[in-house]
Design a protein around this nucleic acid. Sequence first.
DNA 1: TAGATTGTTAATCGATTAACAATC
DNA 2: TAGATTGTTAATCGATTAACAATC
Lengths: 218, 218
Amino acid sequence: MDDNKKISIAVIKRLPRYYRYINELLDNGITKVSSKELSKRMHLTASQIRQDFNCFGGFGQQGYGYNVELLHKEIATLLGIPDPFNVIIIGAGNMGQAIAKYDNFTRRGFAFSGIFDVDPDIIGTEINGITVADVKTLEEFISENNIDIAILCIPKEKTKEVAELIATLGVPGLWNFSSTDLHSIEEKYGTVVENVHLTDNLMVLGYRIADQRKEVYN
Amino acid sequence: MDDNKKISIAVIKRLPRYYRYINELLDNGITKVSSKELSKRMHLTASQIRQDFNCFGGFGQQGYGYNVELLHKEIATLLGIPDPFNVIIIGAGNMGQAIAKYDNFTRRGFAFSGIFDVDPDIIGTEINGITVADVKTLEEFISENNIDIAILCIPKEKTKEVAELIATLGVPGLWNFSSTDLHSIEEKYGTVVENVHLTDNLMVLGYRIADQRKEVYN
DNA sequence: TAGATTGTTAATCGATTAACAATC
DNA sequence: TAGATTGTTAATCGATTAACAATC
């Protein structure tokens, strides 16, 4: 479908952002957009937008610009939205529940089919229409369903062990919320891991505002 | 303190990761580490580690390596951990509560001093030792306290408006969980914004595993 | 046709990696 | 001193930006 030369990760990371802004155009009834217009809205260069889109063959028309509806459809397809990913959540604690209840994912091509926990008080409860299952049944569940992505919302100490199990069972993607990197899993099983290192991110924000803090105690 | 030449954002983003790994070394009682050893653990090049550390003056000793304790202290200082950032949370929904209850932040130099919501059912309840206050009192609270960072866990539609208020009141940092970019706020007020675009991140993962999905429906 | 805007090649910029001299 | 490993300069690599020819 797309060129055989590898798309760089920098480009891939911009895809969801493009999708968001194009959605907005669509919602506002805008039918065409030029790279220049889009660049102003998104705060990046028109050149970059054209380069990015051309990694995937280019969706525009010279002299006209980009048809918003077509662009929307093309990027949705690239991101796999038309055929939703089958997702499970491991760990129904605070973060796991927040993720499960966050309904934006559905509109972006993800369908939750299972939630698992170890806590007997949580097992059996219902979150967003899904009954929390015992993590002991995880292996069976994965074997019987085509799971694309497992979301890890479990304590740091347990993460590697559970990730190992899931990777062994052939789940191709892990979305990891605990502050560990799962290099060993990536290497051993070729599993694709995206980390949400919340604390890391907050620390970056801290660093960036350091010079603007009021020096109260000095 | 540090050089007057600007530290690149790529380097800054690696700082929390360095901090995590150095903490681990410390926990394991390891007292010295070479860039080569650390590079193996962290999956990056020794050269990059030395370059990175030298942005801040260099913490090592030729022929020896890096003293773990010293390294730990230096990076902690860079990240502002010894003098915690004063943080408030706006929005005590699923995500806001998950953040408030996540105790890792405290150990990383952040102290929560307030949580705000609009919902009368939530206002007055206690989360992790802090009573949720009415968002109407937000302006007063910020004026009377030195808030460094506001965490926005509110619906997308409300985000810009609330961000505007907070920025006007002089809060230097915004940690934004809704899927909007706050370019206008950054430009108008010079506020530093870090976005946690969870859906975007999950979509990247989706893209990266696209070729490994079982083609069930084809 | 003239004007607009893409697709694409070339130039620039910045980040990463390699190399090595300094020095513990 | 010899060996090790940093700090730092130089080379490479990749990503972004600029320029322009193609074409609608």
